[in-house]
């Protein structure tokens, strides 16, 4: 390996031109969305610009930790995808670079609001509402009523039929916790989580795992982002998607340029490119049914229509801050997760 590397360098030097060209024409791309979407973006950008993309895929929480750990000597250039909270946190801690893209005029309001709340250090690229999905066949087989509200999930007949991710490891599940707290108030919200706990069959590590399990029929109801549930329904599984009647929270998937990026120009190129309508429309190729930030991007008829869903006024600044997050998670750990089921 080492020998090969040395030879490669030797050849590059001998060629003379290859060295500097290699140094500029690349982009270190941190991606926190689903694997196939990440790859689509990486390949698409390579094809469009000829810039070599080195992709690293990790969850948004892990990527945030990585960028923080590397802040003295940044290895990444751009961070695309994943829930907005860690992006906001990175902006708060000065780990990302402010940038105003000429593409802004084409974007939805919520995408730009995300940018202005963080001093232009991040921007919304897609949005998705929280909800749940259930497996129609399993529900019928167990003679269970059809749920339509958050509070329905507390019914004792659903015992062992509900799955959600662990809020400590999953951004989706943390959004659920924060949504419930904002919807019902903190005290009643935690009573809700305790009631829900009785019906939970497993807290998974990954946010979308509950609905995948429901699609397989291993689980009945999965609390996830609605676009994840839609993906399973479109793939042909007997999954029905529910927008809870009380209203629900949402996430704004975000993108940030990493401070000290070594390929800053390429990162900016990617930033503009990723916000175009044509690129955002390609999300459908990988069955990503989030609402795109670009108003001109195509959406699928099966995608949840955010305008028809009762959305709460999600306080991203408060619930995205690390202190509040830690406090809620600790409370959940201490008061909910330890209860007998």
């Amino acid at each position: 390996m080492k020998k090969f590397g040395l030879t490669a360098i030797a050849i590059a030097f001998a060629a003379g031109v290859a060295g500097p060209a290699l140094a500029t024409e690349k982009l270190n791309y941190y991606c926190s969305s689903q694997e196939d979407w990440c790859q689509l973006m990486a390949r698409g950008f390579e094809e469009a610009t000829g810039i070599k993309v080195n992709m690293t895929r990790r969850s948004s929480g892990e990527t945030f930790a990585l960028i923080k750990a590397e802040s003295a000597n940044p290895k990444g250039d751009i961070w695309w995808g994943g829930t907005g909270d860690p992006h906001l946190q990175a902006a708060e801690e000065g780990l990302t670079e402010a940038f105003v893209s000429p593409m802004r005029s084409e974007l939805n309001d919520w995408a730009i609001r995300q940018a202005s709340s963080a001093g232009d250090k991040t921007i919304g690229i897609y949005s998705g509402a929280l909800g749940y999905g259930y497996n129609e066949e399993i529900l019928k087989a167990n003679n269970l009523p059809v749920p339509s509200c958050w509070k329905d999930l507390l019914k004792p007949e659903y015992k062992g039929h509900v799955q959600m991710a662990n809020p400590n490891s999953s951004g989706t599940a943390y959004t659920t916790l924060a949504t419930i707290v904002q919807l019902f108030g903190e005290d009643e919200g935690f009573e809700f989580m305790k009631g829900l706990h009785k019906n939970i069959n497993q807290y998974t590590k990954s946010g979308s795992a509950p609905i995948k399990a429901a699609a397989r029929g291993e689980n009945t109801i999965g609390i996830v982002f609605m676009h994840d549930a839609v993906k399973q329904a479109v793939s042909g599984f007997p999954i029905k998607v529910v927008a809870p009647c009380e209203g629900t929270g949402y996430e704004i998937g975000s993108m940030s340029i990493i401070k000290g990026a070594r390929n800053l120009e390429n990162a900016k190129k990617f930033y503009d490119w990723a916000l175009t309508a044509a690129v955002q429309s390609r999300a459908l190729e990988v069955k990503a049914y989030q609402v795109p930030a670009n108003q001109g991007a195509e959406t699928s008829p099966s995608a949840p229509d955010l305008s028809s869903i009762k959305l709460i006024d999600y306080d991203f600044a408060k619930y995205g801050s690390s202190d509040e997050r830690k406090r809620l998670l600790k409370k959940w750990d201490d008061e909910v997760s330890v209860l007998p089921q």
Partner: peptide, 17 residues
Amino acid sequence: GQYNMLAVDIYKQVIGQ
């Protein structure tokens, strides 16, 4: 499932929290 074991606890404490 929800049946906790020592070795899994290490993983949960370290990776999860």
